[in-house]
């Protein structure tokens, strides 16, 4: 099953002129334009599309190297292993990952019992945030860091 992003990409790559999110939403018969706007925002950040002054977008082309998200998870595991105790922001900062994706990976690791919550602190914006700890450093290293290095997918 195709994702919305790949449907959008397939559609806009065939367009000869500039386009608006509303036009793409209408052409793909999506329920509302918010999804397309988000997809185009991501694409603009990657340099795949360019937002013109008129508010319309121009498709510039896709490079497979942009799908580098696969390399982010191993980075996050390495960051967790090296930090031992960390906040989500620490990992996002070291691994160049988004906060949403970092939180998602942290939730997965919490479910797997590979990391645990050890306390709360306030961040610089005075909001409470969790501090996590790798439960067993050596096991974590074997399961995630070493496994990724040897080309196997760590964890489930």
């Amino acid at each position: 099953m195709k994702t919305t992003a790949s449907r959008v990409r397939e559609h806009i790559s065939g367009l000869l002129s500039e386009f608006t999110p509303a036009e793409v939403t209408r052409d793909l018969e999506l329920p509302h334009g918010g999804v397309v706007r988000d997809v185009l925002k991501d694409m603009a950040l990657r340099g795949e599309v360019k937002r013109m002054e008129s508010g319309r977008y121009r498709y510039l082309g896709f490079q497979p190297a942009w799908g580098a998200r696969r390399s982010i998870k191993p980075r996050m595991y390495r960051a967790m292993h090296v930090k031992r105790a960390f906040t989500a922001a620490d990992i996002a900062m070291l691994a160049d990952a988004g906060m949403n994706f970092t939180s998602k990976v942290i939730r997965q690791l919490l479910d797997e019992d590979d990391i645990e919550r050890v306390g709360k602190k306030r961040n610089r914006n005075n909001q409470p945030i969790w501090i996590y700890r790798v439960r067993h450093l050596d096991r974590f290293y074997q399961k995630y860091v070493a496994a990724q290095r040897s080309g196997k997918e760590g964890g489930s």
Partner: peptide
Amino acid sequence: AERLIVVDPRAVL
């Protein structure tokens, strides 16, 4: 150093 080893697997700390 932490950042470097996270982005480059050729380095260990």
